[in-house]
């Protein structure tokens, strides 16, 4: 039987979900004030599945997020200042301004960043799982894909590859109703993404993505199977994208009733109700956590705002391990310097 989550663990997950929501709310304000660069992709309503799935991982495991998995990054130790500086394009950001949003990572911290091209992470994470197996490690690889992202060729290739080689890979498929403006039924002719698992000969399961406890346990099961050498799992979480694709999109194409339905099933609200009903926490506990987060966010945001923009010349650095020598064009010095990259 599954070991039930302790009060401490549940409050921990509550903290990460709330942190995700509050950081994003802050980003939304910054977006409206014109203080962030580029678009803002929210995970409102999906904080639960990101947090719970990442929370099921252990030290040494690998995680790769997509744009709506900010919560998973926080669970793995990423702090709000890293997100704020990324969104502001600051020189102190993890990518030093070279890339934005959650497009950053660190092999040491077990975090592999996405590229925008949907699905490309799946074969890469299969490779990480393959290496883990070859190196006789216990580590598993976990990544996410949206309902829309499952329409890519690499989704299929990656899962099939992992299935054949029985790799310790967990793919969380997020059915959040839409891919940009496209509803799920224009993306696939099936109801449940997890049904595809049969076609790959792997484990598949569909869970309520706004029930953090269910997501946590389902992910644990997948991880245990992976560690036992039983191969990959396609774990589908049913959830909903409560805002537009990004903040520029008011999602007029989403019926109001659908939003209302999911509003009542908000993952944070549901965990609060659960904790109260089980006598594990009350409003004062939630307020204390919220208060703590407010302070953390203020401090981190201040750091981000005070950080300088990057030195332009950073643009030329880091393409290779060693900077190759390029012959200088016989041109005015300014121009020649820039072409030497």
């Amino acid at each position: 039987m599954e070991e039930p989550l302790t009060r401490e663990q549940l409050l921990d997950m509550y903290y990460y979900m709330k942190l995700t929501r509050m950081v994003e709310e802050r980003l939304q304000r910054l977006y409206r004030q014109g203080k962030i660069v580029g678009g803002l992709y929210r995970s409102l309503g999906q904080e639960g599945e990101s947090v719970a799935s990442a929370y099921a991982l252990e030290e040494g495991d690998f995680l790769a997020v997509m744009i709506r998995n900010l919560g998973a990054l926080f669970v793995r130790g990423i702090r709000p200042w890293e997100i704020f500086t990324q969104y502001m394009g600051k020189g102190t950001s993890p990518t030093r301004g070279k890339d934005s949003i959650v497009h950053f990572g660190s092999v040491e911290r077990g975090i592999i960043p996405p590229i925008s091209h949907l699905g490309d992470l799946i074969p890469v994470m299969a490779g990480i799982a393959l290496a883990s197996k070859m190196q006789r490690k216990r580590s598993v690889a976990l990544t996410y894909i949206g309902d829309g992202g499952t329409s890519t060729g690499v989704f299929h290739e990656g899962l099939n590859f992992a299935a054949v080689l029985k790799l310790p890979l967990i793919v969380i498929a997020e059915d959040n109703g839409y891919a940009y403006s496209t509803p799920k039924h224009r993306q696939m002719a099936i109801e449940n993404i997890a049904d595809r698992a049969i076609g790959y000969g792997i484990f598949g399961e569909t869970v309520d993505g706004n029930d953090v406890i269910a997501v946590y346990h389902a992910t644990r099961r997948a991880i245990e199977r992976a560690r036992e050498g039983l191969g990959p799992t396609l774990l589908e979480v049913k959830t909903f994208r409560m805002r537009g694709h990004a903040e520029h999109d008011d999602a007029w194409y989403v019926p109001r009733e659908v939003l209302e339905y999911w509003q009542k099933r908000d993952p944070i609200l549901r965990l609060e109700i659960y904790l109260k009903e089980h006598g594990m926490a009350d409003e004062t506990d939630f307020e204390a956590i919220t208060h703590r987060i407010e302070q953390e966010i203020e401090a981190d945001l201040q750091y981000a705002e005070q950080s300088p923009m990057p030195d332009p010349r950073i643009a030329l650095e880091g393409v290779y391990a060693e900077t190759p020598s390029v012959s200088e064009a016989p041109l005015p010095s300014e121009h020649a310097v820039k072409s030497r990259s």
Binding site: G89, G97, P310, I314, A315, V319
Partner: peptide, 11 residues
Amino acid sequence: PDTPIPFSPPL
């Protein structure tokens, strides 16, 4: 130059 195109405005 021969690099990917960076995100931050000054870059």
